[in-house]
Computed example of a mutant assay.
Amino acid sequence: MARLLLCDDDPMYSLALSALLGDWGHSVKTTETAQEALDHLASHTVDLAILDVVMPGGGGVSLLHQIKDLYPNLPTIVCTGRDFLFETPLMEIGMEKADEKIKKTIDPADLLAVINRLLKQAKKVG
């Protein structure tokens, strides 16, 4: 079981994804803002973070950079429901630090494979 942080401002998506991740045996902390995510990371151990790209008050790209500055070995996944963002030059550069980039419509089996791969890689490093 891994401790996951999910930061997404869409409560329905967070509820559904955290339930799925929980069914896979993971413990999930959900936050709706970048500041809530950073506050949680400051006082809790997390094995992997999943960050929404577009959020009010500071999106996932800014949060990604803050997390990688503070916790460079924390595996991070950025996700978005706005698929076109992955092809914009600014977002490509902004998301370079992410360990993985996914669409919110990703097949659950593919998401599980991504999470397992990143957790396995992190164990080798850490």
Rank of each mutant, 00 (worst) to 15 (best):
N116W: 02
A16C: 06
T31F: 07
T45N: 13
C79Y: 05
F86S: 02
T76N: 07
D23W: 08
G58H: 01
G22T: 10
L63R: 02
E87H: 13
L41Q: 04
G126H: 12
M95F: 08
V46D: 05
D83H: 10
G58R: 01
C79S: 14
L112P: 00
G25A: 08
L119S: 09
D47T: 00
H26Y: 15
R3Q: 13
A109Y: 03
A34V: 04
L74W: 10
V78D: 05
I77W: 00
R117W: 05
L38P: 11
L90V: 13
L112Y: 12
L74V: 07
S27L: 12
D23M: 12
A42R: 12
I50S: 04
L119M: 10
L41K: 01
D107G: 00
T76R: 03
D99W: 05
A37F: 11
D52T: 03
D47S: 09
R82Y: 15
K123Q: 14
A98N: 03
L21T: 06
L21M: 13
C7Y: 08
M12S: 09
G59R: 01
F86G: 02
A37T: 12
L64D: 00
G57M: 09
L118K: 08
L38I: 15
C79W: 02
E100K: 12
V46K: 01
D47E: 08
L5Q: 03
S14F: 07
G22C: 05
L51M: 08
T30G: 06
E96K: 15
L4S: 01
V125A: 11
Y71V: 09
L118M: 07
Y71D: 04
C7W: 08
K120V: 10
L15A: 11
R82S: 11
K124Q: 14
L5R: 09
W24Y: 10
L41A: 00
A16I: 11
A37D: 06
C79H: 14
E96A: 13
G60C: 04
K120S: 15
Q35Y: 07
A42K: 15
I93E: 14
G59K: 03
T45H: 14
R82K: 13
K104I: 01
I115V: 15
I106A: 07
V114Y: 03
Q35D: 15
D47Y: 07
L41D: 01
P89I: 04
L4N: 00
D9I: 03
Q66V: 11
G94M: 08
G81C: 09
A98L: 04
E96C: 10
G58P: 03
P56Q: 13
G60L: 09
I102W: 03
L74E: 09
